[in-house]
């Protein structure tokens, strides 16, 4: 696994789980890190406790429902300092698909300080372990009163080592995007935004709101979105809002009137016409109005 080499002289750090209204996916995966040999948290110097007073590291799952909020905060308060908090799954990090419900009060960092985030829905046990390892590093630094070690320069040591089709973070190719926004429309997590800027149309995907379902890829007409197997996305809290993939589709002037427009992506022409000819090449750089004028004017029948 990733970062912290197990130090046999250190006592096991105690992990305490808090379910803040989760779908149970992250909780079931946490259970595997207590029961399945290859994911055992003892390998990274930790074990689970049922008592908050004994805990060193808090693992929070779920979007923080209104109903559990007080219970969650009470349990969190019983964990002695120094403590490190890990948000497991996108629900505690951003609310995930449950954000903006009348019954949800998260993200959890509105109410308690989070130190490490583990995106995923649910994250695989390997990703959860990586997040716990990061928490162990931070816990030791906090206990010793020193600055935490810098983030490892190679944060994804197992990327590529996994040949399975793990659904990891999405990738985006602006050259193939036609700005149809279907991805934004179908995204249950509200992880995709388009912004019209001066120079072009900006696409932003925030991985901390993404549930890695790949529906955006399914409905993308041009293949601008792809699923990668990059699953190791655990990160410290100061990186929370930086975990994005962006792209700009620059505007170009209409070859007729000069008005700025979003040019037609070559991928769309390939999908629509299976190739282009001179006529299409001529029309594609025109705005709608100029295109109507020119194609009606040049109509042959």
């Amino acid at each position: 696994m990733a970062t912290a080499p197990k130090n046999l002289s250190e006592p096991l750090l105690q992990l305490y789980r808090i379910n803040a209204g989760s779908c149970n996916g992250c909780d079931v995966e946490l259970a595997t890190t207590a029961t399945v040999a290859s994911f055992d948290v003892e390998r990274i110097g930790c074990s689970y406790t049922e008592s908050p007073a004994e805990a060193d590291i808090v693992l929070v799952t779920g979007p923080l429902t209104v109903r559990v909020r007080e219970k969650v905060l009470r349990a969190y308060g019983e964990v002695p300092e120094p403590k490190i908090t890990v948000a497991v799954g996108v629900c505690p990090i951003s609310g995930g698909v449950f954000r903006d419900s009348y019954a949800v009060d998260g993200p959890v960092d509105r109410y308690l300080p989070v130190d490490v985030n583990v995106p995923g829905c649910p994250p695989r046990p390997q990703a959860i372990l990586a997040g716990i390892e990061e928490a162990v590093l931070l816990w030791r630094a906090r206990r010793d009163g020193v600055l935490p070690p810098p983030v490892a320069s190679q944060p994804h040591p197992e990327k590529g080592a996994v040949s399975t089709g793990v659904r990891g973070k999405m990738d985006f190719n602006p050259a193939a995007c036609v700005g149809c926004r279907m991805c934004e429309h179908v995204c249950a997590g509200g992880a995709i935004r388009f912004n019209e800027e001066f120079t072009g149309l900006r696409f932003t995907l925030w991985h901390n709101s993404c549930v890695f379902c790949g529906l955006c890829r399914h409905y993308c007409p041009t293949g601008a979105l792809t699923v990668t197997d990059e699953w190791q996305l655990a990160h410290r809290q100061d990186q929370k809002y930086h975990l994005t993939t962006q792209g700009i589709m620059p505007y170009a002037p209409c070859s007729g009137c000069g008005e700025l427009l979003l040019p037609v992506a070559p991928e769309l022409l390939r999908v629509a016409f299976r190739g282009t000819g001179r006529e299409i090449d001529r029309l594609k750089s025109l705005c709608t109005e100029c295109r109507q004028k020119q194609s009606i004017g040049g109509r042959r029948r």
């Binding site: 079931v28 109903r67 559990v68 449950f98 419900s101 009348y102 429309h185 179908v186 249950a188 997590g189």
Partner: peptide, 28 residues
């Protein structure tokens, strides 16, 4: 305690979004 107001949320989301939202009702 795990009431996330999902019957309300599905009405704010379109049919496509609900495919993914409903899959997160329960992971088992």
């Amino acid at each position: 305690h795990v009431h996330r107001g999902m019957e309300h949320l599905v009405m704010k989301r379109n049919l496509y979004q609900n495919i993914t939202l409903l899959e997160r009702l329960c992971s088992l």
